[in-house]
Amino acid sequence: MRGKWITGSVMALFVGSAGILYLENRQNNKVTKPLVVMSYASFIASWGPGPELAKRFEAKTGTPVQFVQADDAGILLQRLRLVSADVVLGLDQSVLTGARSEMSWLPHSAKVDFPHDDFFVPIDWAPVGFVYRDGELTPPSSLDDLRHERFKNQIALEDPRTSAPGFQFLSWIARGRTDVELKTWIRQMHPGIQSVSPSWSQAYGLFTRGTAKLVLSYMTSPLYHQLIERDERYRFALFSGGHAVHVEFAGILAKCVSCDQAREFLQFLLLAENQKLIMEKNWMLPVVELPATEDLGPFRKVLEAARYLKPKDMATLEVSTADRERLLKLWSEAAP
């Protein structure tokens, strides 16, 4: 008797949970459909730009926005096969080709003076390079400088196979080099590499903990320390030969439910006040010109420095699937 009771309780727990889910799902379907935007965790977190953008969009259009978290871009695309969303926000240029081939997208109507195509709108960007703490080392001034022995065991990199900035770095060093030269170049950099982390956050953690003295990150990274932590020591090493860039795009899924609102949302993201919000809360640069009269604090200086690093067109930004595979294979063969 007691056995039946416990077995029954366990079964009831499973069935009850499924029932609650079903009812809740039905309930959700009855209320006004929100615009579902899939993005990464730090964008939709309470301290990120997501919640404020949602508030502003609802105030403007009356459409509520529901942000949904996705893991990295690779998982995001797999996740989209199983859950529905209207907008995907945060795809970087290196996964756009894959995104196009794996999913269907609707053309957008947003206008922006920044490289884009019919399906994907840029929402923010930043040059990629190396961040260091003032006084700890003489910063590198070029890519080749990274192979200097003064950086022995000091550089925290991200794995290009799992990290977007890691891949931007690989594309950057591959520019103008043959496969053999690239592999040689990577091998010559081995002594300097302190770690190759699977994600930017882990690499940056090793850097802030002092384990590494130089980290592959964004030009905007020092601004976080300056503005939030009041720590002025962090610097971005400006290279003479230019930098890689990281651009984040948004697109509308062809299976969208609130498609008109999705188009409106992409245009809304490009408004100067929203670009400023994204800049300040996501630590990336705007893809539109912000009014010269606007007080941007230390961001203004970074914007000026980054002006010359802006990508020119989609062709220079995007990487074909074949090239991506080739570069990753070369990395696997030559990395430490």
Partner: peptide, 24 residues
């Protein structure tokens, strides 16, 4: 990180913090 739609647990929230420069 794959199954949830938002950072609802301490582990997921800490991951979001990690992505926002906040390791400590």
């Amino acid at each position: 990180a794959v199954a949830a739609s938002r950072p609802i647990t301490l582990a997921l929230l800490s991951r979001a913090l990690l992505e926002s420069y906040r390791l400590e």
